[in-house]
C-alpha cells in the first residue's frame, strides 16, 4: 500500500498548507472595524434624542470611542440608562464611586462588539436644527488612537 500512504501524506500536507492560509484569507475578507444598525429615535420639539448603533471591532486591539459629533447636533454624549428593571436614570456607578452624568468614553473590545441599544447605552444628542423622520444624518466617531469614521444614522419615529 505505499501508493495509498503516499497519497494520504500528500493530501495531509496540502490540507496543512491550505489551513495555514485560511486565517489570512478570512482576515482580509472582513472589515476590521464597522458600525451597523445606526438609527436615531425622533421626538418632537427640541427634546434631546437617543441614537443607537452597533460597533464591531475585528482587530486585535481594543478601540476606545472618545467623541461623537455631527453637523445636525450641538452636542453628543454617551449615556447609559440604569436598567434597574425600570427605575431609570443614568449609570452613576461607572468608574466606582464617581457620579458621572455621562460616560467619557466607551470601549469596543478586541474581536468584540459594543452595542448602543434601547434601554442601555445610547448616544444622547442635542439637535442644532430641524430633523425629520426619514432623514439620514452623518455622525463622526473619534477614537483614542486618532481613527475617525463617519456613519449615516437613519431617523426613525418615536416608537422606533
Amino acid at each position: 500500500m505505499p501508493v495509498f500512504r503516499h497519497l494520504l501524506f500528500k493530501s495531509l500536507l496540502l490540507a496543512g498548507v491550505a489551513l495555514m492560509f485560511v486565517p489570512a484569507v478570512a482576515a482580509t475578507d472582513t472589515v476590521p472595524f464597522s458600525v451597523s444598525h445606526a438609527w436615531i429615535r425622533w421626538l418632537p420639539g427640541n427634546l434631546p434624542l437617543a441614537g443607537y448603533a452597533t460597533l464591531e471591532n475585528d482587530t486585535s486591539e481594543a478601540r476606545i470611542l472618545v467623541a461623537a459629533s455631527s453637523p445636525a447636533f450641538k452636542r453628543i454624549e454617551f449615556h447609559r440608562s440604569m436598567e434597574m428593571h425600570g427605575m431609570k436614570g443614568m449609570d452613576h456607578m461607572m468608574g466606582g464611586m464617581s457620579h458621572m452624568k455621562h460616560l467619557k468614553s466607551v470601549t469596543v473590545p478586541a474581536h468584540g462588539t459594543f452595542r448602543f441599544g434601547p434601554g442601555a447605552y445610547h448616544l444622547m444628542m442635542w439637535r442644532s436644527g430641524d430633523i425629520e423622520v426619514g432623514d439620514h444624518v452623518p455622525v463622526t466617531f473619534r477614537f483614542s488612537n486618532g481613527m475617525t469614521m463617519t456613519v449615516e444614522f437613519a431617523v426613525r419615529g418615536p416608537a422606533g
Binding site: L43, L47, A50, S81, K88, P118, H122, A159, G160
Partner: peptide, 17 residues
C-alpha cells in the same frame, strides 16, 4: 418626563404597538 430620550419613548412606543 419628556427629556428622557431612551426609556420613556421605549415604554410609550411599546404601548403604542
Amino acid at each position: 418626563y419628556t427629556h428622557c430620550p431612551d426609556i420613556c419613548p421605549i415604554t410609550l412606543g411599546h404601548l403604542a404597538a
